[in-house]
Amino acid sequence: MGRLLAIDYGQKRVGLAVTDSEKIIATALETIAEKEVLEYIKNYIETEPVEIFVLGMPKRLDNSPSSNAAAVVKFQKKLETLFPDIPIKLEDERFTSSLALDAMISGGMSKKNRRVKGNVDKISAVLILQTYMERNSY
């Protein structure tokens, strides 16, 4: 049994979050430059088993794919090629950035740290992972 690894894919930065080995808690892992993320995931998997990738899929309010959805699908295909034994589950990521900002404010994070876009990406990945875990009774 491995961990669940959530991915908030962006064309510049990618936020990552992971569960504990018991799949109880989702925790922010890292924000990685897009060009380095596949190597980072490969290295992570060498030390920690991953059972499922939970990939955030950007959608519009009407449930249609957003403008970034094509890039996410392209990234999904790379994941499938590099890690064929790890299933990929898509999770709606609507509103995660605004919810992440709200969480940072209510958590008392300073304005300076809230401006660091990588922090929003990591927390968005946590929200994607928590939503997936809640829907699938982890």
Rank of each mutant, 00 (worst) to 15 (best):
N43I: 01
M133W: 10
A71E: 07
A100L: 03
V72T: 12
S106Q: 13
E34N: 14
V18G: 06
T131H: 14
L5I: 02
E80W: 00
T131S: 15
I41V: 11
A17W: 09
K78R: 13
G56T: 04
A33N: 12
G10N: 01
K42Q: 14
I88W: 00
E22I: 14
Y9R: 00
T19R: 12
L79S: 04
L29T: 03
K117I: 12
I25V: 15
S21N: 07
S21C: 00
T81H: 09
L55G: 11
L29C: 06
I86G: 09
S64C: 07
D102R: 14
I105A: 03
R3F: 00
S110V: 07
A69R: 05
S98D: 12
T96Y: 00
K112L: 08
K77T: 00
R60M: 11
I25P: 10
R13G: 02
L99G: 08
A6Q: 11
V116I: 15
S21I: 06
G107P: 08
L61C: 04
D102N: 15
L61K: 14
T81K: 15
T96H: 05
D8P: 01
A69L: 05
D20K: 11
L16F: 07
A33F: 05
E46P: 03
L55F: 12
Y138V: 05
L5H: 04
D62A: 02
K117Q: 14
K23H: 09
E80Y: 03
E134V: 08
P87V: 01
D8R: 05
E22C: 12
E80G: 03
R115V: 10
S110L: 04
V18L: 11
Y44N: 04
P84L: 01
A70V: 00
A125I: 05
T27G: 11
P65L: 08
I25M: 11
G56K: 04
A17F: 08
Y44C: 02
G2A: 11
I52E: 13
L61M: 15
E91M: 08
L29M: 11
Q76Y: 08
E30G: 07
I32D: 07
F83S: 05
L99V: 10
K78D: 02
I25R: 12
S124H: 09
K42E: 14
D85S: 15
I88Q: 04
A70L: 00
A26D: 09
P84Y: 05
V116C: 04
E39D: 13
